[in-house]
Simulated scan of single mutants.
Amino acid sequence: MRATGKLRAVFGPANRSSLVHEMTEENRRLLAQREAETQQWETVRRPDGSTYVVPRNPDDKSLR
Rank of each mutant, 00 (worst) to 15 (best):
E35R: 02
S62A: 03
D60E: 11
R2E: 10
L30P: 03
K6L: 14
V10M: 09
A32P: 02
E22G: 07
N57Y: 09
M23H: 14
T51W: 08
E22P: 00
V10I: 10
Q40P: 03
R8S: 03
Q40R: 07
G49S: 06
D59S: 11
F11H: 07
R64G: 00
L7P: 00
A32Q: 14
K61W: 01
R29E: 12
L19W: 01
G49W: 00
R8C: 00
L63W: 01
R16T: 08
E26C: 08
L63K: 01
P47L: 07
H21Q: 11
M23V: 04
H21T: 04
M23Q: 15
H21F: 07
N27K: 13
R8G: 05
R46T: 09
V20K: 05
M1Y: 12
E42T: 05
L31A: 06
R16A: 11
L7F: 06
T24F: 06
Q33T: 06
D48Y: 08
K61R: 15
L31M: 12
K6C: 14
T38S: 12
D60G: 05
V53M: 11
R2Q: 08
L19H: 04
N15E: 12
S17T: 10
P47E: 08
Q39R: 15
Y52T: 03
T43A: 08
T24H: 05
R2F: 06
R2I: 03
V54I: 12
E26Q: 13
